[in-house]
Amino acid sequence: MGAPVNWPARIAWLVFALYFAYALSHLQLTPARFIAGLDFGYKFLAKLFPPDFQRWELLLKGLKESLEIAILASVLGLIISLPVSLLAARNLMPAWVTWPARMLMVVCRSFHPVIIAILFVKAVGFGALAGILALTVASLGFLGKLFTEAIEEISLKQVEAVRATGAPFMSVIAFGVAPQVFSRFIGFASYELDSNLRNSTMVGIVGAGGIGGTLFAAFQRFDYDFVCAIILSIIGMIIVGEVLTHVVKKVFRA
């Protein structure tokens, strides 16, 4: 074949292959260790089944708390990220306003929700409040970014038309900006609810409420058939959540 050889790409691949080999040996990821674990893994899987749903009340309580954390954090995150994303939109605001708003969102987005949850557990104590605050911060990071991008992509013609009538700032937002981004916002918000639902089942690992605490405790007690029951219920809840957000997106054509 006559295709010219792409030397920079070849060198980049070679460098990556060398790095990959180095990383494998540095992390001591050897096939021998993997195979040694497999046998134990098989026994472990055998212990997981059949799942034990006997303590279903505890399970249901955890799931309910996770759901509450996810809903409240999404709503709070939505309420906070609407004004922040307006401030961060470069086509509506001057640079000295957009930079601080953008920095805030980058910081919120950079940390995993579980790490934020640790800090809130230390600050406000164990329980659902820490989880709600942690996921609110995480939502602000992601929703803020998506909202800002959506606002920056709008057509400015309508905004100028509303401005030309002498409308005050809030009316420009309500009639010039909001109708253009509404359905995309619904899509992003339901995506965020979905993602908060996933994370709200995990913040409990560090004591921030929800089913994660029950899961972690069961793991530490080697109560593996209960672990299996918890994981299966989490998967069930996440799939139901995914179906529901799909329905909402369809209703709003987002």
Binding site: E65, E68, I69, I71, L72, V124, G125, G127, L129, G209
Partner: peptide, 12 residues
């Protein structure tokens, strides 16, 4: 959710 979640108001 607001009515049933176990949050201690003093902590807020």
């Amino acid at each position: 959710s607001i009515r049933t979640v176990e949050v201690i108001p003093d902590f807020i």
